[in-house]
Design a protein around this nucleic acid. Structure first.
Length: 205
DNA sequence: ACCGGGATGTTCT
DNA sequence: GAACATCCCGGTG
């Protein structure tokens, strides 16, 4: 079985098509690797939940780059979250990497994730995943198809019938109703169980 | 298990 | 000043 980084053509499509196919792929970076079990699609100009909705800014510039780049952004003043930039072309679509099952470099992940009590929590949630991989601003714009940061197909197929649900953490009216979250059903590493994300605490009053 | 709140800083209004 | 693609802890049931 030859492990190979996913080619650019894999990413050069609508994030809604790429997202479910990223499930069970291996994220390899910074001395560790983990199998993706939960992702979310963010769809450019038409998606009020996407950073790119209001156009290009210094923060989201990588989303407007070529498919196959890693878009890393700083969230809530303390977390680094990672996306795979999609397409087609320079359409600013992206797939947020929300949760993964640790595969290699567990000791390194534990050292980075000092708050995680169990290994199942090492990459559980986008902020936790970013911490386990040691992501920061320097990873923004990394090329997933050429460099040491990559997503690998090691022969495990995506689920035939992935779980689908609304995305997590979006405010009401900002795309929260769209079923753009995809996950491996029943996987113990999901950021939240099954298809019922916690209701949004920032409801309009 | 569920829920509320604090941490912490960049981005946008 | 408010919002934010979050996480963790402590209180309650």
């Amino acid at each position: 079985m030859v492990k190979r980084a996913l080619p650019r053509r894999f990413y050069d499509r609508d994030a809604l098509d790429v997202a479910p196919e990223l499930l069970n792929k291996l994220l390899v970076a910074n001395g560790v690797s983990a199998r993706l079990v939960e992702v979310e699609a963010y769809r450019g100009h038409d998606d009020p939940g996407a950073h790119s909705f209001r156009g290009q800014t210094p923060r989201n510039a990588t989303m407007f780059g070529k498919p196959g780049l890693l878009y890393v952004y700083f969230s809530y003043g303390m977390h680094w979250c990672a996306n795979a930039v999609c397409g087609p072309g320079t359409t600013p679509h992206a797939v947020l990497l929300r949760a993964a099952a640790p595969v290699a470099g567990l000791e390194t992940m534990r050292a980075r994730r000092t708050k995680a009590r169990r290994d199942v929590d090492l990459c559980r949630g986008p902020g936790s995943l970013g911490q386990a991989f040691g992501f920061d601003r320097s990873f923004d714009g990394a090329d997933l198809t050429r460099g040491s940061v990559c997503i690998v197909d090691d022969g495990v197929p995506p689920p035939v019938s992935p779980g689908v649900s609304p995305r997590v953490g979006l405010a009401v009216g900002k795309g929260d109703e769209r079923a753009y979250r995809f996950f491996v059903r029943g996987d113990p590493h999901l950021s939240r169980a099954g298809s019922a994300p916690r209701s949004n605490p920032r409801r309009p009053s």
